[in-house]
Amino acid sequence: MKKFDLELAVGFFLLIGIICLGYISIKLGKLEVIGGEYYTLYADFAKAGGIKPGSGVEIAGVEVGRVKSIRLDKDYAALVGLEINSDVKIQEDAIASIKTKGLIGERYVEITPGGSDKILGNGGKIRDTESAIDIEELLSKYVFGKV
């Protein structure tokens, strides 16, 4: 009978454990292990309510990046930084709009591609934006009439 192999048993446990830890952090936690495959675009929104760092960025319903930062710009607009997959090209006349998934779902940024030949590079700015639709405001307009 062979002696009990301590190293093998420990190695087996560590391997299984690390695979599980990796699975939940990368697949479910969306941890980015390999950096550098993103570039950053900026967009000014009049109202960025509802989106937060980590919210999705989509083109035609396909996720192509995430929201990286949100801060106040000089002219009191919300400057939103978007991390976009480097293999997705975005034209300078593309439109960024904040949309809602379903009626009460979470907010995300939808980019509608433009027709220009000029492609935005790292640090570029999307000029055309559409702010979040405030459902409460719409409802109150409908209920109380325009003042």
């Binding site: 446990f13 560590l14 299984i16 454990g17 690390i18 599980c20 830890l21 699975y23 939940i24």
Partner: peptide, 14 residues
């Protein structure tokens, strides 16, 4: 310290 997080991860995945 090594085993607890790994066992927890296994528990979660399973």
């Amino acid at each position: 310290i090594i085993a607890f997080p790994l066992l927890t991860a296994i528990y979660d995945v399973v």
